[in-house]
Computed example of a mutant assay.
Amino acid sequence: MEEKNTYFGGFFKGLASLTTGLKTTMKEFFTPKITEQYPENRKELKMFDRFRGTLVMPHNEQNEHHCVACGLCQMACPNGTIKVTSETITTEEGKKKKILAKYEYNLGSCMFCQLCVNACPHGAITFDQNFEHAVFDRSKLFLTLNHPGSHVAEAKKAPAAEKPASDKAAAPKEKAE
């Protein structure tokens, strides 16, 4: 036998649905609100660990990276945002070796799928936590990753800049003697 919806059955079913919705609304109404004051808290703002910001190629202190120019990341990219240019050189032993000449990345067409990072067998590329990508000129979204950022270049230039200053300070002392 089929149950027929009676007037009072439908009324109580609707009332139960209404109380379920009100219970959820009132629970959210009394929970503390969390508002990020974004431009002011930029320094201490930390994105979650799995966030994909900008594709980077980490370099060490000697300006070396792990990329061997195999091109697997370029083949795995569905949008064609990565372009790997390689050169073949001859080593001192007479063997031919393929090296990375230029690693170009188009941030404007990247969909942050992480297929390139997963395809890299050497772990040469990764995503960082940077999320501020707003620019007025699209040409600034074309990045060359095999050249390190300014922090590595500045670290190398700083000791070189200190030596001439100490040599200049020593020169007047020698003249005085």
Rank of each mutant, 00 (worst) to 15 (best):
N106E: 06
G71I: 02
I89E: 02
R50L: 11
I99M: 07
T90Y: 00
M1R: 08
E87P: 04
V56A: 03
C73N: 02
D137F: 03
K163I: 07
D49N: 12
P78L: 04
Y105L: 02
K33I: 07
K33C: 03
K175P: 03
I89W: 01
S166C: 06
F131T: 09
Y103P: 01
F127R: 01
D137N: 07
Q114D: 13
A153I: 10
A161S: 09
P164E: 13
T126Q: 15
T144Q: 12
F131I: 10
V117Y: 10
F29H: 12
C67F: 01
K33A: 07
C110E: 03
L22Y: 04
T6C: 08
K175F: 07
G149N: 10
K4H: 09
K33H: 05
C73A: 02
L72D: 05
H151K: 13
K97N: 01
L55A: 01
V84W: 00
C67L: 05
V56K: 03
L15A: 15
K157Q: 15
G80A: 05
T81D: 04
E93S: 13
T6E: 07
R42H: 12
V68A: 11
A16I: 09
E174R: 11
I34L: 11
E40P: 03
D137H: 06
M26K: 13
T35M: 03
K13I: 08
D137W: 02
H65M: 04
P32Y: 05
E2I: 09
K97G: 00
L45K: 13
F131P: 04
I99W: 06
P148C: 02
L22M: 05
D49T: 11
K43E: 12
E3F: 08
K13N: 13
K27N: 12
A153G: 12
E28H: 10
K173E: 11
K95E: 13
R52L: 11
C113E: 06
P148Y: 00
E36Q: 09
P164Y: 11
A101F: 04
D137L: 05
H66M: 10
I99P: 06
G10Y: 06
E2K: 14
T85C: 04
Q37W: 08
V135I: 11
V84K: 00
K157R: 15
V135M: 11
L143P: 01
L45D: 05
Q129D: 15
E174I: 13
L72N: 07
F136P: 05
Y105N: 02
G94F: 00
A101M: 06
N106D: 11
G71W: 01
Y38T: 15
S109K: 15
I125N: 00
V135Y: 12
K156A: 05
